[in-house]
Design a protein around this nucleic acid. Sequence first.
RNA 1: GGAGAGGUGGCAGAGCGGUUGAAUGCACCGGUCUUGAAAACCGGCAAGGGUUUAUAGCCCUUCGUGGGUUCAAAUCCCACCCUCUCCGCCA
Length: 423
Amino acid sequence: MLDPQLIRNELDNVASMLKKRGMNLDTNTIQELEDKRKVIQIRTEELQSLRNSKSKEIGKIKGQGGDAGEVMKEVADIKSELDKSAVDLENVQSLLTAIMQAIPNIPHESVPDGNSEDDNEEIRKWGSPKTFDFEPKDHVDLGEQSGLIDFEVATKITSSRFVVMKGDIARLHRALIQLMIDTHSSEHGYTEVNVPYLVNAESCLGTGQLPKFEEDLFHIEKHNFYLIPTAEVPVTNIARDEIIDANDMPLKFVCHSPCFRSEAGSYGKDTRGMIRQHQFEKVEMVQLVKPEDSYIALEELTGHAEAILQKLDLPYRVVALCGGDLGFSAAKTYDLEVWLPGQQKYREISSCSNFEAFQARRMKARWRNPETNKAELLHTLNGSGLAVGRTLIAVMENFQNKDGSITIPEVLRIYMNNQTVIK
RNA sequence: GGAGAGGUGGCAGAGCGGUUGAAUGCACCGGUCUUGAAAACCGGCAAGGGUUUAUAGCCCUUCGUGGGUUCAAAUCCCACCCUCUCCGCCA
């Protein structure tokens, strides 16, 4: 959520900054509601104040053994007007909140202009697409050949967009998780956490999945819990309603978790293979930092994700998302795109974002600023480090051999009993 | 799932219908003392919102959450959530 004060005081300015996203803010409606709110709120609070002082008077009179009948009558009149005014206020305010919660974050000034992913700006490239002296297969064909990836049985067990991995592929998948967590915790200073995969509605509200994106989530109605679409939700919410000591900042967490996404609106997109699943695993990095540090932190965090790709010797590029492609809560996002020989394309494998105070405001995640000695909103960031399923695909496709076997990257071998190849 | 106890400011912990937004302690900030520090002493210190040029004043709201009773609720009633103890079940 944006700062309501900012929206109130600089409505036109906010609207023009949101244009970068291709969003047209309905400033007239907001201004109208806002004007209404002001009048009603002032009146309501006046009445409350009056009621309070009169009630105190009654207390005083009664304490002295007097007759408070007349004052009590006055209060009764105040009350009936107050009740009506309070209802009006609540109506206007709930309308305003609904609008405010649906307003996305303001893009950082460095975010490139543009409407779609075609307008994203390539920042840098690492490595170059591998050349093969044979026609490279995609991971589906490779998995089918070895029999170690089974989509059909997963469809039987649950439905489409699920997968069963077996044997060395399942193990390779697990090895990737180990590599990522170990690297981030021992080399990049993150604290490993293990968190709930079911969260309540407040947590989803905190990170911005609710109220706007309910249809993307799996919901357990009986308990009103949501399956996490990313570890970002439970991990970032560690700081919800907390005031973090300045000495403990920045807080850096790394977390492996399954992610559940209903992929509503993505039907027909990436239906082949493991690119887009209802359930996948991800290693997520989350940082809670002082506001002044958040853009340096974004660069670092992106570098931490890149380090994994470099260790795996996977060619990739970094793109800065343009305004139109930016996620709802993010002020700035770098996507890491890995080269997939099977598709002859760079595909997203990580997304690293600075949310500034957007999530923190919703979560009341604050820190004690020693300079002001006040609790102030902190900044939140997160990034995939990396999406495990997609990394598995990338390894399979980039390290495939002519016979369909897969060479295991050096760094993973210690997690695989020094095995060198998967047949 | 059953029985009991409880949820109050950054933390601990009083208050159990009316000058209580909340005693007290700790933490924190400022000061005195000190070569400096500690100790001691003095003072300050909740959050959110509205109004406003204002981080000044004034006002409103908040004692788990939501409802109710009352002129008045942290205090009484109801529902829900959570925590703790005991019992049951269980990886």
